[in-house]
Write a protein that binds this DNA or RNA. Structure first.
Lengths: 345, 345
DNA sequence: GCGGGCGGTGAGAGCGCTCTCGACGACCCG
DNA sequence: CGGGTCGTCGAGAGCGCTCTCACCGCCCGC
C-alpha cells in the first residue's frame, strides 16, 4: 500500500478561506447564492490545497453516485469476436464522461453471475444501468426490473411480459436487411439466399424478417439457419450449395458468417461476385475489408448507439429532465443503417 | 427516477436480531468473534430484510473502495480494431469479481483526458489502477505515479526515469518474434523480411529486436517500418517488393499488418506460402483464421494477461499479502507465447 | 425612520457504517 | 476460593459531506 498523504477535507478548505463548511460546499457544487468575492477566495483555497471532494461522503448523503453500470451478458462468442463491444463502450464512455459519470463494467459469466449482478444493481451502488443482453431467454431484464433501477437496453430486448417503460436503443436490423436484399435484387439476382444469425437474438430474427419482407415467396430452402460465426457460415454455405446449386446471391446475417461463406464459395469454384454475390452485416472493419473479395455489407453506427444509450439513461436519471418530460416520456430509439458497397456485391 | 423503497440499514438489522449494530457489522464482515447462535440470528435478519451494506458509508470510514480503475489510453486505432481489449477486460473482470472488486473503466480521448483521469485517480475513488498505455511518450505513467496510487501496467511501459517498483505484465514479444523468425528459417527461407509495428510502442520495438536476434546481419532493406494497420501492411509490402523482389518470407508485427501484406502478395502474383511465407503476431482469431491462406502467427494469452494484472494489483493492495511479501516484493511478469501453425508458413 | 423582506452565511444535525474501548461473564490456575 | 485472562458484546465516537434552518445585515417601502 502506498501511503497517501491525508487528503484535505471541506473543513480544511473552509478554515483556509475563512468561511464555513457550508459555503465551501456551495461553491464546490456550482456556487449559487455565494457572493463572488467569497466564492473566489474559496476557489483559491481549493486550488492551493488540491482539494477533491470525497465521493463516498457525498454519496452517503445525496444517495447519488454519478456512476452507471454497463452490464454485458454475452457468453464469450459474439462480443469477443467483434470490436463491437469496444465501440459501444467508447460511445458510452464519451457520453458519461461528458456528464461526469463513471462507468462501472460488469461482465457476466454464465448463470451464477446473474445473481451477483442483480445483487450489485439492487445494492444501489450505481444510479442506473446500460444492459446488453441479446438472448431471448435471458433473465437479466427481469432482474433489472425487480432491482428497481433505471435501465436502457442495447438492442431490443424481447422477453415475454410487460414492456411498458422499457427503454432501448436498437439498430434498424430489419430495414438494413431489406436494403441488403434489395441491393442484391437490383444487381439482377433472383435466387437470393439468407444465412441467418443465432435466432435466439432479436437482431438475427429482425434481419431474417427483413429478408422475408423483400423475398416474400422465396424458396424456404434458400434460408439456412446459422449462428453468427465463421464456421457456422461455412457449414451453412455448404448446405446451401447442396440444396440450391443455382444460388446466385447470399445475404449473410453478419460479416463473420459472410467470411465463412466466401471461403466455401471459393472452394467450390464459384466466383464472387460474378457467380454469387455476397452481402454481410455489421461492417466489422478488420473482417469486412480483409475478405477476398472485400465485403459489401450493412453498416451500423455502433459508437453512436452507445452514446445514445447513455444519453437516454442520463436523461431518465436527471430530475430536471423528468419535469420537462411531462407528457412526453423519453422513448426508445432505432438507428438507421447504411449499405457499404465493396467488391462482393 | 424510480422510487426505491428505503433500504434497510445496519440499525434495522440489529433491531430485528436483537443485537447491537457492532455485532451485525462483525457478522456481515466475516463474523469473527461472534458466537454461532447469535451470528445465525443476525444472518436470518439480514436475509429477511434483504439487507445490503451501503458501500458509500463503508468507504467513508474504511477508505477502501473495493474498486479498481482500468485506464485505456489508446487513441482509437489499435484497441478498437482488435478484440484484444475485450479479452483483457474479460480476464481482469474475472479476477476482480472473484475478489469482490468493481471495475471502473476509464477510456481516454486525447490529451485533455489525461488530466481528467489523473484527477480521478488522485481523487481516491478507487484503490488502484490497471493501465494500458503503450506509447512511449505517454504522460500517463508519470501521472499515475504522482497520484500515488498503486498501479500495474499492461505491456512494459517505457518512460525515462525511475522504474523502481513499477509493476507490469507483458507478453514475451521478443521471444515470440524469435520463434516466428526461426520457424521461417526452419522452412528454408533465408531472405526473411520484417514489417514492424508502430515503433512508439514497446511491443513493436521488442518484436523488432526479436527479429534481429535471429537475423543478426540481415539486409537493412528487409526491415520496413509500419504501424500495425492493414493499410500500413499493404504499403510496407509494396515497398518491400520494390526493394527486394527476391524476398521469400515475411514476419509481420501483427496479424492486421500481415493481412495487408498477404493481399499485396496475392496481387503481385506471389503464392503464399510457396513463394513467400508469412507469419503474423497476436492470433486475432477473426482475422488470422479468415485470411487467404489462413495465417500462421504467434499467439499470446491475452485473457491471462488481464487476469494476472488484476491479481498482481490485488496482491499489492492487500495488507496481508504485504506482510508475506517482506523480502520478496511482487514483481512484473512476462507471459510466454506459442506459435500457431496455419497455412501461410 | 421603522418594520418587513430578502439575499447571504453559519451552525448543526445527520447519512450508514466501522472500530476502539470498556464492561461483563466464564473459565482457568495456583 | 480469589484474581487474572480470555472471549464476546455494546456504547459511542467519528468518517466527510449536504442540507435545513436560523440568523444577520441591508435595502426597500410607506
Amino acid at each position: 500500500m502506498t501511503d497517501t498523504a491525508p487528503r484535505p477535507t471541506l473543513e480544511a478548505v473552509a478554515a483556509r478561506a475563512g468561511v464555513s463548511r457550508a459555503t465551501v460546499s456551495r461553491v464546490v457544487n456550482g456556487g449559487d447564492g455565494v457572493r463572488e468575492r467569497l466564492a473566489e477566495r474559496v476557489r483559491k483555497a481549493v486550488d492551493e490545497l488540491g482539494y477533491v471532494p470525497n465521493q463516498a461522503a457525498r454519496s452517503l448523503v445525496t444517495r447519488r453516485h454519478d456512476a452507471i453500470a454497463v452490464v454485458v451478458a454475452e457468453p464469450e462468442a459474439r462480443v469477443f469476436a467483434d470490436p463491437f463491444f469496444a465501440r459501444q463502450l467508447r460511445g458510452i464512455s464519451k457520453e458519461l464522461t461528458a456528464h461526469d459519470n463513471q462507468l462501472v463494467l460488469l461482465l457476466t459469466e454464465g448463470r451464477d453471475d446473474h445473481a451477483r449482478v442483480g445483487r450489485y444493481l439492487a445494492g444501489g451502488h450505481v444510479d442506473g444501468a446500460l444492459v446488453f443482453s441479446l438472448h431471448l431467454d435471458d433473465p437479466l431484464p427481469k432482474l433489472i426490473r425487480s432491482a428497481g433501477i433505471p435501465a436502457v437496453f442495447g438492442g431490443r430486448p424481447d422477453w415475454n411480459g410487460d414492456q411498458r417503460g422499457v427503454l432501448y436503443v436498437d439498430v434498424d436490423n430489419r430495414g438494413g436487411a431489406r436494403d441488403a436484399v434489395r441491393h442484391l435484387a437490383g444487381l439482377g439476382r433472383s435466387r437470393i439466399a439468407h444465412i441467418t444469425g443465432a435466432l435466439d437474438q432479436t437482431s438475427a430474427v429482425d434481419r431474417l424478417d427483413g429478408y422475408r419482407d423483400v423475398m416474400v415467396d422465396a424458396d424456404p430452402r434458400l434460408i439456412v439457419e446459422s449462428d453468427f460465426t465463421p464456421a457456422g457460415g461455412e457449414r451453412a454455405m455448404r448446405e446451401l450449395l447442396a440444396r440450391r446449386p443455382d444460388v446466385d446471391a447470399v445475404f449473410a446475417a453478419n460479416d463473420l458468417t459472410a467470411a465463412g461463406a466466401l471461403r466455401v464459395l471459393r472452394e467450390s469454384g464459384r466466383r464472387v461476385p460474378d457467380d454469387v454475390a455476397v452481402v454481410g452485416f455489421d461492417d466489422i472493419l478488420p473482417v469486412a475489408e480483409q475478405t477476398e473479395p472485400p465485403l459489401t455489407t450493412v453498416r451500423q453506427d455502433i459508437e453512436e448507439m452507445g452514446r445514445l444509450m447513455a444519453r437516454l439513461l442520463l436523461r431518465e436519471l436527471d430530475p430536471r429532465a423528468a419535469e420537462e418530460r411531462v407528457g412526453g416520456t423519453p422513448s426508445s430509439v432505432v438507428l438507421p443503417t447504411t449499405l457499404v458497397r465493396r467488391a462482393s456485391a
